[in-house]
Each structure stands twice: as structure tokens, then as C-alpha cells.
Design a protein around this nucleic acid. Sequence first.
DNA 1: AAGTATCACAACCGCCCCGGG
DNA 2: GCCCGGGGCGGTTGTGATACT
Length: 311
Amino acid sequence: MRPPSPNRKKEVRLKRGPWTAEEDKLLTAYIQKHGYGSWGSLPHKAGLERCGKSCRLRWINYLRPDIKRGKFSLEEEQTIIQLHAFLGNRWSAIAAHLPKRTDNEIKNHWNTHLKKRLIKMGIDPMTHKPSTSPSPKNGSNLSHMAQWESARLQAEARLVRESKQVVPNLTTRPTRRSQLTRSSPRCLDVLKAWQGIVAGMFVFSTQDPRSLTTSTLRFPSAGWGEAEEWRGQGMKGSSDADDAWFEEDSVLLHSLPIANIMEGLSDAFILNSWMGVDKSTVENTVMENGNCWDSVLNLLNSSPCGSPVLG
DNA sequence: AAGTATCACAACCGCCCCGGG
DNA sequence: GCCCGGGGCGGTTGTGATACT
């Protein structure tokens, strides 16, 4: 605990550290009766010797009734990893896509679990790419990342415009930054589309799951709806060590295609817009087209919200 | 049983953005 | 346009619980 600053004007002794049950009760009772907002004056009104920030944090991260606590499900972990691959450490944006989870909780879970597991697997948790042995495609990856960022920023800019016409959702946490993502989630829901597309359509030509990051993509030979087989197929052909690795980190592995194959994602976009087109035509075109980002940009910018591409 | 290391997560800190004056 | 205060966010720390030696 650091000593109170002598420069602070009329220092009121504010309590710090863990909240007591009594304090929780006071805060909850006050907010239930009066609602929240103006956190600066709330502590005094509620009879708490805490700073407004502390009250806000306690409410948002712990006392809110619509918070889901406890272990993260596999699905949630997968979602976090995938969203983190695109959004980085923008926890509030990630939390906006995980109902009833707080940004703080997600951040903690990432730092204590997911990040370590990625590192253990040799994946750079920041780039979601292999942390060693630079890929020969690094240059193009960077380029694609830059293009993706450009696409994302353009999409966000569009969201900002659209958000001005959207009534805020009063049932969710009203944050200034998250309003951008929350009031217009469709374009971020593109992630869901990716998840469905990639998990549902792609299999990897390699039998070594560790080389997923550099694998080329192929399609399930038996049909579009049988992509689940890829996991089993991959395990059958791998060594014991691979199996152990595969099993241990199966959740993460299942996410890897989305996290790592940034290039493939552009293909996924195109594929999604080509549903119904002859499979071989799609495959040929995707494989021949080394850079689909122009198409991605077009999709992002021209697709009206509610289009199939954006969910 | 005691000491130490590690884990999990609540809470704090400082920076930044935004709106209002 | 500038300043200021409120509020939000991400990074970091503190601390209790648990596992290990």
C-alpha cells in the first residue's frame, strides 16, 4: 500500500483492498434502488468510503446480477482465442461477444490459462503464429495482417457511422468504447461466420497437427458437411507424442486454423459468398488466387449488414 | 509439518478518450 | 481551440488458496 499523496486536496481517507460483504450489500442496495452512473458521487451517497472507480469496478466485475462466473467452457475458450487473434488485447471488445463474461475475467483467464497454453504449444500468443522458425511466408503474412487491419478499421469506421443511428442496448454494460462494437455487432459477427466456415469446410493436408500453421488447405473429400472428420483423421496418422499433444491441447488445436491461417480467412470469406457454387471451381479459384484481400475489402465494405457474409 | 512455489483472480493504477464549459 | 473532470480500458500488482518439496 502506498502512502497517501500529500498533494491531494482535502484527502478523504478512502478504503482500499478487498471488499467486505457489508460494502457489497451497500453498493448493491444503492444501485438496485437508484441505478448507477456518476460514479464520483455514488460512494458518498451509498455510504461507502471507496473511490468511485473502485465502486464501478466492483459492480461491473463482480456484483452485477447478469454475470456468469466459474469455469470457462471449451466454446468460450475457443471464442476468446479466435477473437484475440483478430482483436488483440481489446478485452472489452472480446467480452462484448461473450455474454455474461466481464472483460476483466476474460483478461485474467487469458493471462493465466490460454496465453500459457499457446506458448507451451509454440504459438506466439500475440501474433497467434508459431513463435519459432519464421515462416517463408512471413512477408506475405505481414502484408495480409496489414490488409486485414485496414479492412477492420474500415469496417469499424463504418460501424461508427451506423452506430449513430442505433439505439443503445440498455441491458448491456454501457461503455463508451464498447458502444462501437456493441451497437453494431454484425461486422464482428463475421468471426462467427469464419468459425463456421473454417471449422466446417477445411481439413488439413498434413497429418502432423503441429504443422497446421503452414498447411495448405483442402476440402473434405466426402462432402461439405463432414469436416469434423479431420480431427480424427489427423490423430490416426500421428505419433504417440503427437496424440498426447493433440489430446492435451485439443481445444486450442481446434482453434488453430482460425487463429493461424490468416491467409485462409480471406479464402473463407470468398467461399462463404460462393456457397452453392461448384466445389471444384471454388477450390481451384481459391488455390490459384494468392491474395483475396481485395475481395475481402469489397465484402466488408459493400455488404449490407444482414447479408449472409456478415452473419 | 513447515517452507516455498505456483496458480487464480480481485483490485488497483495510470493512461486515454470524450463531452461539457 | 483549450482545459478539466468523469468514465472506460488494458496492464499490472497483491493476496489468498493450493500444490509441491
